[in-house]
């Protein structure tokens, strides 16, 4: 008797807590776009307490897949959507909203930078990633094996980088010594090693990972900084995109959040995080 009353109480409590007053916006995808969305979500939910925003990472590939499967409301993508992806999901009308610009920079460990390697050409990077150049002494540094850090094939950062250095976004990197995922992981690995090279989003640079300037065929050297990225001089630039499915009705809170990201407040978050705002 007591037990059944207790069970009844539990059931009532359960159902009463089920009625959630918050509307949920689900977002997932690129780890490059993630910091912007996270910071914007915190600011946005302070202004609109009845809205809750759930954010997951996993890479640009996840962003595309989950939007196509209608598991999320907004997908984060740090590359252009490919024709294969458009063909793979014919029932989805992908629409990209660009909230910022970013550069993908080749980065090396501190020790390599301090020994004099401060600039590199795209072809040389390509040769390193394909395994033709294996040792730092071939580039004029001390004798140590190059630790080539690659990323998972579905990551937007990787596809943009590979397109720039090898002309093929799906290129194989036979010289890869490590394959990592999140921008965060790459940053840690480069900082931990003293002989590593990798690819990193510009906004993720810090004192322990040094960006190399790109040298082109004419010998012109372009450093990665806010001006060169804004002007488009730096050769490896990509947009920070948000994907929605235009075939499905966009909920008002989703549309409102997207508008917030493109507003002055949202764009100031973008530039605070060292990305380039689009409405600047």
């Amino acid at each position: 008797m007591l037990l059944s009353r207790f069970l009844l109480l539990l059931i009532c409590l359960f159902f009463s807590s089920c009625k959630s007053p918050k509307q949920v916006i689900r977002i997932a995808g690129s780890s490059t776009v993630l910091p912007v969305i996270e910071k914007a979500a915190t600011a946005y939910t302070k202004l609109h307490p009845h809205i809750s925003i759930q954010i997951n990472t996993g890479g640009s590939g996840i962003g595309v897949n989950q939007i196509a499967l209608n598991k999320i409301d907004i997908g984060m993508i740090s590359r252009d959507i490919s024709q294969e992806e458009i063909n793979a999901f014919p029932q989805v009308d992908f629409k990209t909203i660009i909230v910022g610009k970013d550069a993908v920079v080749p980065v090396v460990s501190n020790e390599i930078y301090e020994q004099g390697l401060t600039e590199i050409s795209l072809t040389t990077i390509g040769q390193i990633y394909q395994g033709y150049i294996k040792n730092w002494e071939e580039l004029g540094i001390n004798n140590s094996e190059i630790l080539v850090i690659d990323k998972e094939a579905s990551r937007g950062t990787r596809q943009v980088f590979m397109q720039a250095i090898l002309g093929d976004k799906d290129a194989r990197a036979q010289g890869a010594g490590l394959v990592l995922g999140h921008n965060n992981e790459v940053q840690t690995a480069i900082a931990q090693s003293d002989q590593a090279i990798g690819m990193l989003s510009f906004a993720w640079l810090n004192q322990e990972v040094k960006a190399l300037a790109i040298k082109d065929e004419q010998g012109k050297v372009t450093h990665a900084n806010l001006e060169t990225i804004k002007q488009g001089d730096f050769p490896i630039i990509r947009s920070l995109g948000l994907l929605i499915d235009h075939n499905k009705p966009v909920r008002p809170e989703v549309a409102d959040f997207l508008e917030y990201l493109l507003s002055t407040a949202g764009q100031s978050i973008v530039s605070e995080l060292q990305y380039i705002p689009v409405n600047a």
Binding site: G58, G59, G61, I62, N65, A68, L69, A88, F89, E152, A153, S154, G177, L178, V179, G181
Partner: peptide, 19 residues
């Protein structure tokens, strides 16, 4: 040398491929 196991591959890449 670096390598890959079945479980590590599944953990890293399963979510990247559509159903």
């Amino acid at each position: 040398s670096a390598g890959q196991t079945v479980t590590s591959k599944l953990g890293r890449d399963l979510g990247n491929y559509s159903f």
